[in-house]
Design a protein around this nucleic acid. Structure first.
Lengths: 364, 364
DNA sequence: AAAATTTAGCAACAGCGTTGCGTAATAGGG
DNA sequence: CCCTATTACGCAACGCTGTTGCTAAATTTT
């Protein structure tokens, strides 16, 4: 995800990232696997593999004898060669996870945050949590950085928290900069839902198509993975999916409009009818499918995961009932495989993605 | 937009496309302009410019004397060095346009199509129209191809019309293949709204951010430009924006759901209340902004352009009233500068984009 | 033991942007 | 008029990428 000009160093990073994506997705792989996946020549793949092996990111893991002929060398990712820490900053709690290069969550811890916590209080909590996690296995040397997934609005490109909703002390806080200084680690700041969908994409590898993470947790948000990358929108503000109107004559929402998905859903929950709430959410999900034509829908969030089966059933049925879905069409619906860790884990993977993912070509 | 592996030929195409984008956006440019825009070294830009000049795509256009020092050579795009033809295939009509390399529309013509026309009838109409357009200026040698923008569902990657809505003879028709054979030209097939947003993006250049084209014309559709490329979704079916539910207790739509934006809007139009219809559409547009955080909204479509000011006002007001839009946030709302030609022109530009746009790296 | 088959890799190569440095073209000052 | 500073341009060598051509290694089959 590092920004580079379009010179040969881009090719280097790009093709290395492709091989890493193969290694992350498949338990083991060999040269021919990568050749097929990338379209590169075998010789080029050999060179890439040699570079990654020298860096300790992958390693040989035996040979495969395909019957006749010289055996093929089998490679595997070295999961514990690099780690990243992810933080999910919510209104009252901080969740930290330790993630390895393969995307596996090694540790997970939740600690409370003071009501209306300040940037300083968050930094202190982060410092304590990171020291605990990184200290145990002495990972300092292999720690790539800290990813922070947080409620918005924020400015991901400049690492700025614009105006975190419901938090008084968070107006135009340059969180990335002060966290990097305070913690001595590279820091990546992003919206919570964007971090979440990155987790799903990173674990699924390069074949992961257009997808959304639907998160129900003190509000309803959506994280999007479109065209092989996170979609953040023009001002890092994409995903306010809960504030789309689904009922023109519905109750007034905190955002000022009437009949937002979030308020309609909330009323159903308050009335004790979770099944109805789930069906309301499902209407919103199908709206997304109609608009964006997604291949995957992932469900997450504390409030949703209290009734996982109810929501999964409602959304799956609504998606299948959508008459426009023909034989050539399909959308998978699933609960997040990472559960409550998905935001924090995704934030961590954004750090790994910066180093070992597809480099971004500099824009404009 | 050609697919290549990540080798040095990609760099060549990528940087050439960047320079072409500069030339298309600015009337004239010089080496320093491109250096700033691309991050390349001046020497590298010189090489790219030399290649493009040799191909006749750009040419010197005088010098600029910046006071002291050697004058800088000024370059310009050669608009009439390449042309493409775009077709907008609707249910009852075929619109053809001739577009030059700069994105300017030179000719535009509409002809009726028979009710329930067959693929053969469309091919004949295309053949006649193209001969007329290309024959006038003897453009055969400079014609890059034909772009077709059409109602879906269709499969853009394979050039297949899946099941054109409301047309009986269009089930799994390999339109791209048979058109290429019949017309002897490269053909690109895409959904109408996707072609439309490509027109806007192609004319605005590399600085064009995330955007949507809202089209009201026998239904409501949306074309999306996200992250510097058209967003088509997992099955080339993105943009069925008219079939998102905005009124849970609304009337039943042809798609089977209740309270779709399209049916609610349609009822308002039938009742003669265009202003109300425009406000309904505006609710849908703000829903899109909440979800996708767009920088630009472009309004188009025959039914909308019958009351351009009504719709423009309603959407602009709704976007501005959206309380979440803060000082750092902004979204432009505009009518399509190409009017009724936008779909056909965009289809033509997709052909030009294939040759002279940013090459796509091969996926998976 | 020889042939066939599959995989791996060395060496030379083409092509990209980069770097170092010389050259051309202008304005201003002595 | 000449010299200098300034700005733009481009040749030549270079480093790096993936590619191509070919040889070598390791295995099974005959």
């Amino acid at each position: 995800m590092t920004r580079v000009t379009a010179d040969v160093t881009f090719l280097r990073g790009y093709n290395q990232a492709r091989v890493m994506a193969v290694g992350r997705t498949a338990r083991t792989f060999e040269r021919a696997t990568v050749v097929e996946a990338t379209g590169l020549t075998p010789q080029a793949v050999s060179k890439v593999i040699a570079r990654l092996t020298a860096d300790g990111l992958i390693r040989p893991a035996g040979v495969r004898r395909p019957g006749i002929g010289k055996p093929a060398v089998v490679y595997e990712l070295v999961p514990d060669s690099r780690y990243a820490i992810g933080a999910h900053v919510a209104r009252r709690s901080l969740r930290l996870v330790l993630v390895d290069l393969a995307g596996a969550v090694h540790r997970s811890a939740v600690s409370p945050l003071p009501r209306d916590f300040t940037p300083e209080q968050l930094l202190d909590a982060l410092g304590v949590g990171i020291d605990t996690m990184a200290g145990i296995g002495d990972l300092r040397g292999r720690l790539s950085g800290l990813g922070i997934g947080m409620i918005g609005p924020l400015d991901h490109a400049n690492g700025l928290v614009r105006d975190a909703h419901g938090l008084r002390h968070w107006h135009d806080v340059p969180l990335r900069e002060i966290a990097e200084k305070h913690l001595g680690l590279p820091v990546h700041l992003d919206k919570d839902v964007t971090a979440g969908i990155t987790a799903e994409a990173w674990r699924h590898g390069a074949t992961f198509g257009d997808a959304a993470l639907i998160m129900v947790e003190s509000g309803i948000g959506g994280g999007f993975w479109l065209g092989g990358a996170a979609h953040r929108g023009a001002h890092t503000n994409a995903g306010e999916f809960g504030h789309t109107v689904v009922d023109l004559s519905g109750p007034r929402c905190v955002c000022g409009r009437h009949g937002c998905l979030e308020i309609v859903h909330h009323h159903a929950v308050e009335a004790g009818d979770v099944a109805h709430a789930a069906r309301v959410l499902a209407v919103g999900v199908v709206n997304l499918l109609q608009t964006l034509d997604l291949a995957h829908v992932v469900l997450a969030g504390a409030d949703l995961l209290r009734h996982p089966q109810t929501y999964l059933t409602a959304v799956t049925e609504a998606v299948q009932a959508d008459a426009r879905r023909a034989s050539w069409s399909s959308t998978t619906v699933a609960l997040s495989s990472l559960g409550a860790d998905v935001i924090a884990a995704g934030a961590a993977m954004q750090i790994l993605d910066r180093h070992y993912g597809i480099p971004e070509l500099s824009p404009i």
